[in-house]
Write a protein that binds this DNA or RNA. Sequence first.
DNA 1: AGACACTACATGCACATGCATCCAATGCAA
DNA 2: TTGCATTGGATGCATGTGCATGTAGTGTCT
Lengths: 134, 134
Amino acid sequence: MAELDSPEEAGLVAQWRDLLARHARTACLLDRELGEKHGLGMSEFEVLERLVEGCESGDKGLRVQELAPTVHLSQSALSRLIGRLEKAGLVTRAMCAADRRGIQVALTEEGRRCYAEARALHREVLSLTLAEEP
Amino acid sequence: MAELDSPEEAGLVAQWRDLLARHARTACLLDRELGEKHGLGMSEFEVLERLVEGCESGDKGLRVQELAPTVHLSQSALSRLIGRLEKAGLVTRAMCAADRRGIQVALTEEGRRCYAEARALHREVLSLTLAEEP
DNA sequence: AGACACTACATGCACATGCATCCAATGCAA
DNA sequence: TTGCATTGGATGCATGTGCATGTAGTGTCT
């Protein structure tokens, strides 16, 4: 029975611990800052960003499935996240004409504005936390 | 108002997205595999590992505070995590003689065994998920 | 000793998440 | 067309998390 890690395994473990530390620092600070100052969670922001990237101003929006790869969440969690954004007035849900099972999620003006306001803070947090070494 | 990211910002965002993807892949698979085959979550495993590293066989164990830096959890979440490990028979909680506010957390034989059994799977998952590029 | 601030951990509560399941719409086969 | 498997998304439920708070023990100052 292996009681000690091989050098390769030790490297993997070190890499994983570093990743965990960076992720925790960044995610925690992002959630706190975006939450306090813009009422957004980290994943909410990611979804808004994907919507901004994925559709022009007059566009119908994106399907829920197209948003899924962006946020690393289960389908149910994404569904509820969109529900929160909708309740906050940042996106609209509309039936998809082509496939009436699908839902088109589109940014509202308020959503666009909220994203634009939060963006600088988001980048600022990244530059703070991703730079540190430990 | 900046509508586009500067090159430095774009680099940070790309780095962050890569980190998020790696973290999600690895954490999700670790939770699933360790959960199915050993009844452990990712953080439970990390705590067991810290206990193995931090105390010899006959040792009294570690203070809760000494475990905190390892798992990136709030104090309350860590307290409950230890509660779960205790209920599962993998660790014991004992009053700390020197400072009776403190709690000594020590591995049981069962805990040591469980960790030893889960270790290979843990390393295997890391080597799988940390290697991939996307 | 007595009062008070502080520390270590536990707990009530609100909330986000994943899993399983449900429902409606679609597509395909007979 | 009818029947049935599949897909897109929503929802009930159990659980894990953070925040705020509670409780007990410690240290300090007078």
